[in-house]
Design a protein around this nucleic acid. Sequence first.
DNA 1: TTCATAATTTTGTTATCACAAAAATCATGA
DNA 2: TCATGATTTTTGTGATAACAAAATTATGAA
Lengths: 218, 218
Amino acid sequence: MQSGRLSDFAYSSIKEQLTRGAYKPGHKLPIRSVAEMLNVGATPAREAINRLVFEGALVMVGPKTVIVPHLDLTALYEVTQMRLALEGLATERGTLRATNDVVDKLLALQEKITLSLDERRYSDALHDNKEFHFTIYRLCEMPRLLSTIEALWLRVGASFHDLYPEFAEAKYGVHNHLAAIEGLVDRDPSAVRAAMENDIRDGYRRLKKAAQERLKRQ
Amino acid sequence: MQSGRLSDFAYSSIKEQLTRGAYKPGHKLPIRSVAEMLNVGATPAREAINRLVFEGALVMVGPKTVIVPHLDLTALYEVTQMRLALEGLATERGTLRATNDVVDKLLALQEKITLSLDERRYSDALHDNKEFHFTIYRLCEMPRLLSTIEALWLRVGASFHDLYPEFAEAKYGVHNHLAAIEGLVDRDPSAVRAAMENDIRDGYRRLKKAAQERLKRQ
DNA sequence: TTCATAATTTTGTTATCACAAAAATCATGA
DNA sequence: TCATGATTTTTGTGATAACAAAATTATGAA
């Protein structure tokens, strides 16, 4: 179940819950409740929560209240800009180190994604979509860059997770992913970057639209 | 002296020490020592240290040993690439919002920097250099971007701080800063970005060279 | 001296407790 | 019904102690 530090276990657990959309925006995360739920003491729970606040995955709305962040279009925009810059960098660097094995893996992933979308298994599609992106980003072998990008994904993932299903419906991304794969085959950094940027921007627009509609309904 | 949370106080204190180069690379930071030095309990000290480890400003070299990172050219390169991407973004966005007041402030800062360099007050020069950069970055009003950039500065600042004096000697940067100011006057985003990128790259090269020479000497 | 090993000290982690402050609940009056 | 103030509960923070494991030092043999 858990190995080593309880703080890390608590951190991973909450993070996992967040990326699975287990908590609705606004949901409170008091230390003692988290501690009880995970069967750990207050100290590891506290540490995990604070770390997630530092990373921006959770927000403090009062001196003693940490919640799952509400939809925040400003944050979404800002994170998108940072994603374009950093994932663009990772993509260009990665393309130069691409191998045929990676291309095959991406093709397989893309087939899985398409299948998942057809069968409306959005959660699976989103999971493999993330794997698709990070398979490319991992190529550049820049661990610090990678962890920064991961933090950005978590940031929007937390508050926008429940929008992803309606976001995935549109099947945006398929075309961009295929373009990215073609660019990788050609070892053409700027082509792959353009495809990935397009993917990020499409996602941003779709997510923003869904968020605006939801905000209007309430 | 300290207001509110002791953890934050401890965090800021250590961070301050790091950016001032108070600790040599390899210096150990055991919880209890830090706690005693800052006159706080173990909990705040522990929290501050862990946070700095997460951010990459300190490194864990064993299950129970946290040290100030040694010179690491790989990390320097990686952080530089991220800086180019993120500070480039901040610069372009900021340029669009530049005002004459900001230009005046930058001119004043640049005069201070030049004076400090002439009088060999490198610490002052470096401080104002940072202020110069962040005065531009603050313009875009993207707080999440800004804090990410700050973390990057801290990252290299910690292990490369004692190289900055010999780095500053060369007076690199002056020309780039002036070019940036001119670009701001013209409200020309890509001009300012080019100047800032050049500044970052010059700094990287100088720092890398100094680090290599030092590594050779030992 | 050098290296492996044993003894000792140091250290990180976690649970627990006390306290002050914040948040929630309730009561009251218009 | 709603605002407002008082009361109760909940909560984050920080100190402390116990424990296991790591780091350090001491030891001894080759």
